[in-house]
């Protein structure tokens, strides 16, 4: 290796290390600092220079957030997520199987429509107003099922995409043998396809759960009743409600990201795998 090339290698390595440190600070600091702030009393909050660890932690901010009924809304959001995830799996698995194994008229255009729906749901802001006025007209707004319905529709295309990839890798002999043995269509999906596509199912479910939990725009306009509100619009609402009181604000933000961090720590590997599957293919 020439001296020049060695020098270049050392400088790239330094650059990579510097970039990693910068990323850790930029990505980690807001979360660490947010959690620390949520545990501070008002005096500690306004101390200058800011205190990192030498303060007396208190749960006061969490009590103030809890007093607004925040935990009830966390439960609401959780129910929305569970309903959406169950719906996308129940609707998505038969569709994914049919798109891979059956040949039927319009199969390709129909599947392209599913693929096109993935980016359509990313651009949900443009769809928000049409969906809103349409659902107002149908009298669906401010009902308990409007948000799970919207969330399931947003997450379904990606689920079908990921599950179809899983079905592709199941050997045809397996389901053909089961069909010869006279298994029903539901039995085939439940006893053969479902167990064999478990990793993809986990990845798709996690993705759908996180997408639903984090959704803001539909949640902020489709429902009005306080008990129907998911938590993202509530956290946003706290900016106006608590003003510059960063204690309760960061407490609500911490609570809002807790389930996601929990999933992330427990299923980090499946999480990244799911993102890769969903991301590369679509």
């Amino acid at each position: 290796m020439s001296a020049r090339r060695r020098a270049a290698k050392v400088s790239t390595q330094t650059l990579v290390v510097a970039l990693v440190i910068l990323l850790v600070v930029l990505n980690g600091l807001p979360f660490v600092w947010g959690v620390l702030t949520s545990l501070k009393s008002e005096q500690d909050l306004f101390r200058f220079p800011p205190a990192f660890f030498d303060f007396a932690p208190t749960l006061d901010n969490y009590h103030r957030v809890a007093a607004t009924g925040f935990f009830g809304n966390m439960l609401t959001s959780f129910i929305y997520c569970v309903v959406a995830v169950i719906t996308v799996v129940v609707v998505g698995l038969p569709a994914a199987y049919a798109f891979d194994r059956y040949s039927f008229p319009l199969r390709r255009p129909l599947f392209l429509l599913i693929i096109a729906s993935i980016p359509l749901s990313i651009g949900a802001a443009a769809l928000l107003i049409p969906t809103y006025i349409y659902f107002v007209r149908l009298g669906l707004t401010n009902t308990p099922y409007v948000l799970p319905l919207i969330y399931a529709a947003h997450q379904l295309p990606m689920t079908i995409w990921i599950l179809k990839g899983a079905v592709e890798s199941i050997p045809h002999e397996l389901d053909e043998a089961a069909i010869v043995d006279g298994i029903s269509r539901v039995g085939l999906l439940w006893r053969i396809v479902l167990p064999l596509s478990r990793p993809a199912l986990a990845a798709a479910s996690i993705l759908a759960f996180v997408g639903t939990w984090n959704e803001f725009v539909a949640g902020s306009v489709m429902v009005d009743s306080p008990q129907l509100k998911p938590i993202q619009p509530l956290v946003y609402g706290f900016i106006g409600f608590f003003g510059r009181e960063w204690g309760p604000l960061t407490a609500s933000a911490t609570l809002a990201m807790l389930p996601i961090l929990f999933i992330f720590i427990l299923f980090g590997r499946q999480f990244v795998a799911g993102l890769t599957k969903g991301a590369v293919k679509g």
């Binding site: 979360f31 600092w33 947010g34 984090n214 803001f216 993202q232 992330f264 990244v272």
Partner: peptide, 28 residues
Amino acid sequence: MIVILPWITSAVVATLLFRWVFINDIGV
């Protein structure tokens, strides 16, 4: 995992925390 941390957090929470840490006049 470090790289995708802001992405898996909701836009509301991530932006709020970012604002608190990096922009606020009493932030770090």
